[in-house]
């Protein structure tokens, strides 16, 4: 559960880890039944309505103004988004 929290970037408290573990166990038990009928010869469907070759022609548009880009920024500087240090000190 802690590992999943790291992968999903959610800082789970001990209480949350405990609660989620129990709930997810029950849910996973229930949904694991998909493998009963998912035999090798059945193809997977990732799109409900099959289409292919949906393209856009290479013509400019849709560009946001810099003000729109930064409109909701929690923090910014020099026209860019600002975030705290990305890695801790050099190990």
């Amino acid at each position: 559960m802690r590992h999943l929290g790291v992968l999903a970037r959610i800082q789970l408290s001990d209480e949350e880890v405990g609660r989620l573990t129990g709930q997810l166990d029950a849910i996973v038990d229930n949904i694991a039944k998909v493998s009963e009928v998912a035999t090798p010869e059945v193809p997977a469907t990732s799109h409900p309505i099959p289409l292919e070759n949906v393209f856009r022609s290479d013509v400019a548009g849709d560009q946001l103004t810099p003000a729109q880009v930064l409109q909701n920024a929690p923090d910014s500087a020099d026209g860019r988004f600002r975030v705290t240090a990305i890695l801790g000190e050099e190990q």
Binding site: A77, R80, F81, R82, V83, E89
Partner: peptide
């Protein structure tokens, strides 16, 4: 390494 903050 050691940067205080980063700009994106």
């Amino acid at each position: 390494q050691g940067a205080e903050y980063s700009l994106v």
